[in-house]
Computed example of a mutant assay.
Amino acid sequence: MTASFTRRVLCAGIAGLFAGAPLLAAAQSPAANFPNKPIRIVVAASPGGTSDILARTIGQKMTEKWNQPVVVESKPGADSNVGADYVAKSPNDGYTLLLLDVSTLTMGPSLYPKLSYNPRADFAPVTTIVFSPHALTAFGGLPANNLKELIAYSKAHPGKLNFASSSNATRLAAARLNLATGMDMQVVPYKGGAQAMTAIAGGESNLTMASLLSTIPHLKNGRIKAIAVASERRMQAEPNIPTLQESGVRDFVTGSHQGLLAPAGTPPDIVKKLNAVVVEILRSPEVSAKLVGQGAEVVADTPEQFGTFLREETDKWSRVVKEANVKIE
């Protein structure tokens, strides 16, 4: 055997090893066999609200696509911080996910300086699911049917209007609306949007703001009426509801950005796989049309885009909380 023949054999063997390396890496990737057991989507709010509706819609489609059960589990409490803390401390293997109004993460650090988890560091963003503007709604028996009448009623009855708040976002929206209109709404906290709506329907509270997506089902029985929607333009799902801007409140756009996250340290390949399937579900004609008809706008962005959004929103709301001097009692 010549020296040149030996060198050719060695080179060919080494080349073969390197050629097989990508296949070996793929086989060893954590995402290769993901998912091979049930997935849990933890909703950081009570059943019946926006997050719950979205989790069940997405979970059902994920089950169909992956042939693995996707279980929705509600963990409400402490302005959604109970559920967020639970997922932050869960195994980072992609099998426990968090779905919530992202105001918990972006406003929480300014409102709750001593959180038991780190909103910036403890999560791996997967995707922003939807944006649904807040709808300002009132008890059906309240003698005010538009914003002008509501402001007049508030001034005629100082300190009498109370506002059912179910999230950081709605609490700050109420504070902004008080400042913008001169109203004096007293904020009363509730565990979730469903409880706030029940309080409005029964006359226990006068007003609330919740995502249009979770509001629409409650407008049909007449016990709750819509005053305005906090979007730039009227929404396709409810074109008869005027915007707050039309009603005289300039530059007032607020709402619910719902997001899906995994615990920090979840392998990037698994995060990408989760993102791909959820984006595919959200952009499908069936789901997209359903969500638009319910009062939401599909976002379905990348993990990187979602991460940038969270950072920017956290910085923005930190300034708002300081300027408005908002404090949690």
Score class of each variant (00 low, 15 high):
268 P>A: 11
248 G>R: 00
230 A>Q: 05
181 T>C: 03
141 G>V: 12
16 G>C: 13
157 H>T: 14
89 K>I: 02
57 T>L: 13
140 G>L: 12
245 Q>L: 08
226 A>Y: 03
215 T>A: 13
14 I>K: 01
226 A>L: 07
197 M>F: 06
181 T>S: 04
135 A>L: 12
178 N>C: 08
197 M>E: 05
247 S>C: 10
128 T>S: 15
42 V>C: 04
329 E>A: 15
94 G>C: 02
86 Y>E: 14
140 G>K: 07
78 A>M: 10
40 R>I: 04
181 T>M: 00
215 T>L: 06
132 S>N: 07
50 T>F: 08
268 P>G: 07
169 A>F: 05
161 L>S: 09
79 D>C: 14
130 V>I: 14
302 T>C: 12
292 V>S: 11
244 L>V: 07
108 G>C: 03
55 A>W: 04
95 Y>R: 13
160 K>R: 13
272 K>E: 08
189 P>Y: 02
179 L>H: 13
326 V>H: 04
229 V>S: 02
221 N>K: 06
153 Y>W: 15
12 A>F: 04
199 A>L: 09
279 V>C: 03
58 I>M: 06
182 G>S: 12
240 N>Y: 12
313 E>C: 10
232 E>M: 10
115 L>I: 10
224 I>W: 01
174 A>S: 13
93 D>I: 11
238 E>Q: 14
244 L>D: 00
243 T>A: 07
